[in-house]
Amino acid sequence: MNDNKRTRFPNRAEWLVTAPSFLWLALFFAVPAVIVLAFTFHGHDASGGVGEWSLSTWRELVDPDYPAIVWNTLRISFEVTLWSIVLAVPCAYAIARMSPKWRSIVAGSIMLPFWTSFVVRVFAWKTMLHPDGWLQACYLVFLRVREWLFGWLPAFLQKALVLLGVASSGPVDPATSTILDSEAAVVLVSVYTFLPFAIMPIYTAAEKFDFSLLEAARDLGAKNFYAFRKIFIPGIRQGLVSAVLMVFIPAIGSYVIPQMLGGTDCVLIGNKIFMRAIQNRNIPHASALATLMAVSVLIPIGLSMWWKKRQDSRDRRRLEEQTARLMTSSMEGGVQ
């Protein structure tokens, strides 16, 4: 593992093979990212161009709306990710247990929606979410249940729940509480859109999972769900991690769904960036928002990586200690 220098670039041939993708990433990812970052340190002019070097853009960013929008974006992305994973895991499990023939049929039909345009599908949802539709009726039931669940709580707890997106801020009114133009619509359609991206990596991991391990767990006394939780879920960890990334990252940047289905109720950072860049023709401001969003995602990821690293080294230390304990106890000859 300390052999990094050798394992990273063993020879020139490998360099040549990887060079195109490096070049691609540099040209179309690294360079634009730097340009976007540079834009934020410029002012803007009235014609939509980028102005002189200045910190004015960053100063303008102190908009009282922004913290709430960033928070909502992160919160909704988190909700979408959570629901996608919760739905994707049993789905992937079921597909992985099917016969190979059925597996390809079902996995294929999961990918089928991608054959139609994304915008067309969102429009279809608009029809389905119409106030006269059955989804609206379901939505009202959902709101009433939620009201009944949290309505009795003290005011400060309710406020906290609203902030977390668990409770709604106002009373339920069938005339104005429509699912169209609500946060619920955004979450619902986002989950619909991103679910295949969650199922596929989990399914790939589940397909490689050795299901006889579940049998072994049951044989040793585990109930079905315990075996699922303790053996299957850790066994597909890699798939879960990619699924989370596959859903969370596009969810953060999504703006078509909130634009078309979220109304004024659900404006996310993507919409703001779009608005600033296209409507206000203020490219530096849009760049600054994009940078802000990127940073607000990178910080938690960085923190969790640092935490995991710390945890790993702790585990290793604990492991060494335990081995030492075990060795001494067996050397004392106390165990038969």
Partner: peptide, 16 residues
């Protein structure tokens, strides 16, 4: 299976 105190050593070991 989880209700009987009968344990199996599987051919492929099935270690977790």
């Amino acid at each position: 299976p989880n209700q009987r105190r009968v344990h199996t050593v599987f051919q492929n070991y099935a270690l977790f």
